[in-house]
Amino acid sequence: MSERAEVTNAVSEEWTPTIVTFLCNWCSYAGADLAGTSRIQYPPSIRVIRVPCSGRINPQYIIKALVDGADGVMVSGCHPGDCHYLEGNYYARRRFSALKRLLSLAGFHPDRVQFTWVSASEGARFADVVETVTEKIRVLGPSRLGGRDGA
């Protein structure tokens, strides 16, 4: 299905995308935890995978999630300068920027892949980010790559 058709086919208000979410152990995962313990509500769209560092995220993971039918991918790590391993997220930033350009060239809507930074103290921001990202992906509708050979 074409991307534009997806948009005009206006997905139902109730549909929630499935967003494969990579969170770094030290900042964003703790931020998500804080959102939870503070009882802040956010859409049930994310499927969290905890990784040691945003620099540990092999671009292949993100590509794999998308081509196997994830509606979107979100990645969040420590803010630049706050990396637990000092510089992991600086390397990640370059890699993700290139990856996003590549995916866009190959015809994956840039909004389907989101990168951001959330610190351990930003529980409310985490919920905000999830809400924004979910809405951006929701309006695009389901992935056109419906799993194994569903393209």
């Binding site: 600086y90 350009r101 951001t116």
Partner: peptide, 9 residues
């Protein structure tokens, strides 16, 4: 450290 943040939310 001042790489452009070209793909971030």
């Amino acid at each position: 450290q001042d790489d452009q943040q070209v793909a971030f939310l």
